[in-house]
Simulated scan of single mutants.
Amino acid sequence: FEANPGFVAPAERRNEVISFVKSGLRDLSISRTTFDWGVKVPGNDSHVMYVWVDALANYITAAGYPDTKAERWRYWPANLHMVGKDIVRFHAIYWPAFLLSAGIELPNRVFAHGFLFNRGEKMSKSVGNVIAPADLVEKYGLDAIRYFFLAEVSLGQDGSYSHEAIVNRINADLANDLGNLAQRSLSMVAKHCNKQMPLCGDLTSQDNEILAQADALLEQITPLMEKQKIHQMLGAIWKVVANANRYFAAQEPWALRKTDRERMATVLYVTAEVLRQVAILAQPVMPDAAGKLLDLLGVGAKKRDFINLGPEGRLAPGIELPAPVGVFPRYIEKNESEEKS
């Protein structure tokens, strides 16, 4: 653990593991005799395998072990092993010990996520505050729920959610910031640019500044993702979204339509290009919604990878665009009578 301080994260869990190891490690029995359910120990049916030996071994047997020439074995060692904080000891102490004893490579990193609380309270059937994930998805949408939890909660820490917090994220970040920018700009493209991606004219310092911010995002967020700081990654992307909204408002393309249509086209193009890069980067969190936005921007399926980010992947002027539709609708409260109907 000292030689590889990044092996266990976050820091609280690493300190917990180190404290346990420093307290002194004792031999661990890998079988049990007090019950008979489980995997029998070969050659001794009176013993069953200790459940954590059985369970943890599934990680490598699923990858083909002991056949190290199996096609799936290329997936081991895992780059990242994500576990709950309540079982970090089994994955960060027992599991590495098992692997080392067998001469098998360790996963590169074990990251322990925290717990989710309902309005700050631990979920409990006796309290009656347990909410099924499927119910949240049905009410708010799958992409919206994914975005909320990953943006709201620092991975590795405990997090809390409530109806009000979810609605605020949906309406502020998705509907108002990203959704409204996409709808306003693409509606103008459809109406005033013959439903085609506009030509990009001479760029001003303001154009270059917002494009540079979008171009720099991948390099900026990659180290954040490597350290599982997903909320900071999304924060960096949405900072560019906020700046793009300010850029769009300051350039006033609706006014330019009457005075300088070439400049209007450039502003709309620059805005669309920022939206393209934001949508590509948002795909891991919101694959469906981001995909729909890329459809509206005329970005083909083969041009949606991170390799297409930056100046080399700029939008092609003149391509036909579909009619713009809302990708991120606002969440509107329903009264009880409406919900029942």
Rank of each mutant, 00 (worst) to 15 (best):
T259C: 01
N208R: 15
R13E: 13
R32H: 04
I230N: 01
F7G: 00
K22M: 06
N194D: 15
P287N: 09
P42A: 11
L136R: 11
V267M: 07
V21I: 15
N243V: 03
E333F: 10
S19Y: 01
G318I: 03
S160Q: 02
L136P: 09
I131N: 06
L150H: 02
I210P: 11
Y161I: 03
L174K: 06
R146W: 00
R89S: 09
E336W: 11
G64C: 03
K22E: 15
D45K: 10
G326Q: 14
H113A: 05
A323Q: 10
T204G: 07
P77N: 08
K292C: 07
K334D: 06
R184A: 05
V51F: 15
N171R: 08
G313Q: 07
A78M: 10
F90R: 06
I166N: 05
G298W: 09
Q157M: 01
K227P: 00
R330M: 12
S160F: 04
R26W: 05
G201Y: 05
P311E: 13
K239P: 00
R276D: 06
Q213P: 01
K258G: 00
H163Y: 11
S162C: 04
P329T: 09
N44M: 03
R89P: 02
Q228M: 14
L256A: 04
K122F: 07
R169C: 12
G103N: 01
G310R: 03
A249T: 13
F306M: 10
V153R: 04
L142V: 07
K303A: 11
V51E: 00
D177R: 13
K191P: 00
D288I: 12
E226I: 00
K334F: 01
V110I: 08
Y147K: 04
W52L: 13
R169L: 05
N79V: 01
S162Y: 02
D67G: 08
M188E: 10
Y140V: 08
D143S: 10
Y59K: 02
A182T: 08
P287S: 09
D202H: 06
A216H: 07
F98I: 15
A11T: 13
Q206M: 08
P133Y: 08
T61F: 11
I93A: 01
K40Y: 02
E336L: 14
G24N: 02
K334Q: 14
S337I: 12
S185F: 04
Q283E: 11
V189P: 06
G128F: 02
L155C: 06
E333Q: 11
E121A: 12
Q228D: 03
L275P: 09
Y147L: 05
G6M: 04
H81L: 15
Y140W: 08
E312D: 13
Q251Y: 01
K22V: 04
D54N: 11
I237T: 08
K292W: 07
V167H: 02
G159V: 08
L150E: 01
E339A: 14
E262G: 15
A250S: 12
Q283M: 12
I30L: 15
A323G: 00
D305R: 09
H163D: 15
A190M: 04
N335F: 10
A216R: 08
V39P: 03
S154T: 15
P253R: 02
L106M: 13
Q213M: 14
A214W: 09
I30V: 14
Q213D: 14
